[in-house]
Design a protein around this nucleic acid. Sequence first.
DNA 1: ATTAAGCTGTGAACTTTTTCACAGACCATC
DNA 2: GATGGTCTGTGAAAAAGTTCACAGCTTAAT
Lengths: 212, 212
Amino acid sequence: MVSEKTIGRLSLYRRLLTELLADDRLNVYSHELASLAGGTAPQVRRDLMAIGYSGSPSKGYDIADLADSISSFLDNPNGTRVILVGVGNLGRAIMSYFKIQRPTLNIVASFDSDPKKIGSDICDRPCCDIAELETKALELDVRMGVIAVPADRAQNVSDKLVTAGITGILNFAPTRLKVPDHVYVEHVDLTTSMEKVAYFVQSGRKSTEPDA
Amino acid sequence: MVSEKTIGRLSLYRRLLTELLADDRLNVYSHELASLAGGTAPQVRRDLMAIGYSGSPSKGYDIADLADSISSFLDNPNGTRVILVGVGNLGRAIMSYFKIQRPTLNIVASFDSDPKKIGSDICDRPCCDIAELETKALELDVRMGVIAVPADRAQNVSDKLVTAGITGILNFAPTRLKVPDHVYVEHVDLTTSMEKVAYFVQSGRKSTEPDA
DNA sequence: ATTAAGCTGTGAACTTTTTCACAGACCATC
DNA sequence: GATGGTCTGTGAAAAAGTTCACAGCTTAAT
Ligand SMILES: NC(=O)c1ccc[n+]([C@@H]2O[C@H](COP(=O)([O-])OP(=O)(O)OC[C@H]3O[C@@H](n4cnc5c(N)ncnc54)[C@H](O)[C@@H]3O)[C@@H](O)[C@H]2O)c1
Ligand SMILES: NC(=O)c1ccc[n+]([C@@H]2O[C@H](COP(=O)([O-])OP(=O)(O)OC[C@H]3O[C@@H](n4cnc5c(N)ncnc54)[C@H](O)[C@@H]3O)[C@@H](O)[C@H]2O)c1
């Protein structure tokens, strides 16, 4: 089984490969990809081994082909439809960023509790009443949700998402969500990230880890 | 030496302890803190052992005292002064969020290249010209920086920060920064986080990791 | 007093992740 | 067609991180 860390790095490799393609590169060696990704060559080779991809000793990896292989491993072939709850400062930043993104990751609607926002379009997507979350989510056939509401509302929103059949949540609220076993949660804790950097600045310690 | 993972969890524990304090709790057991943090009891005890903190077998840990111990381990006693570069959607969200935060983490100024933003105040802090970064950073005596500029500008901004004496960077741009050895970089890669969740949704795999 | 229960601190075992190191493949050049 | 250099794929070793399991302490109840 492919480890969670490898999944994250594959996503990174794919993005780097896309950039290389745009530069008209055709092939890449593990050590080059490693250097771009901030890792080591053996690690790149292990990660690719995990998805059963093979390169050639002379040319390295075929960039376009590898990117395709990673995509067919990572992506849902029908694309992933996403809803976002909490259209505040952060929610809006995310909406605007992923609006322009690849069609495979598609934020199809947002939800809020603020009457001023409900009914309007945020980044070309309808902003709906949080009360309609369950019905709308089923209707839109969505499996993934993003939580960007204040911390004290996050667990409640999470419960609603789970009821609506969501099985993956990206959570920006500084709260550890309690969810059933079949639901995957990724916590993005910006305060902790800030405090970690502050600690390393304060202590004078240098970076040791291959990746955050 | 305290591991990077432990540093991150200590930051989380401190926030949970602060919440418990606000609920007038005085003591907490490792298994309670573990449950709030989404971890295990032995792990909490190991993490606290790493900073040399001891609880009592009968009462567990003294909440206020433990929070203080974590703070004196993590924080610079004079506070950490931070500058942010790139006042776009994301940069503004972060400015507004950390404006209200504890005085120990203080975003003192922002920088941008857009003449419309330069000179104005963003969240009560001056927005300066990126060209002045080096001089202003020295003047403000800042050691930590946040990068929220477009990907193709990130390395250039990073170089400027390093020249200005910054030793810790929180980077939101989807670019792996090249920095000298003494500089600590934390990458927050939201696209990868999204894609990870999408993968787990698509594959039907459940969450296994103790923490993201 | 004595017993019982439930906690912490920690050596040791275990698991996961990363790195090493080298056989085998491939190409370019002589 | 042999030689040398440089790559991949991978078993094995090492390192890092986590969990187990229990001794020892403290309190509460009998
Ligand atoms: N902005 C940041 O940089 C930052 C940093 C760290 C953490 N966070 C966390 O991210 C979350 C969002 O941050 P923000 O700065 O965007 O906050 P915000 O206050 O700007 O936005 C919150 C939004 O959620 C909406 N909302 C409130 N209750 C709701 C409910 N029950 N259902 C649906 N919508 C609801 C509000 O109307 C508002 O639009 C918060 O939990 C915050 O702690 C943000
Ligand atoms: N918004 C998101 O949700 C999101 C998600 C993933 C990644 N990111 C990354 O975060 C970064 C910022 O995202 P955003 O949505 O805020 O973008 P944005 O375009 O809204 O903001 C970028 C800001 O940087 C400024 N800028 C450009 N060049 C500069 C320079 N050389 N020096 C100083 N300032 C400069 C621009 O004037 C603008 O204010 C980008 O790298 C983006 O890829 C953002």
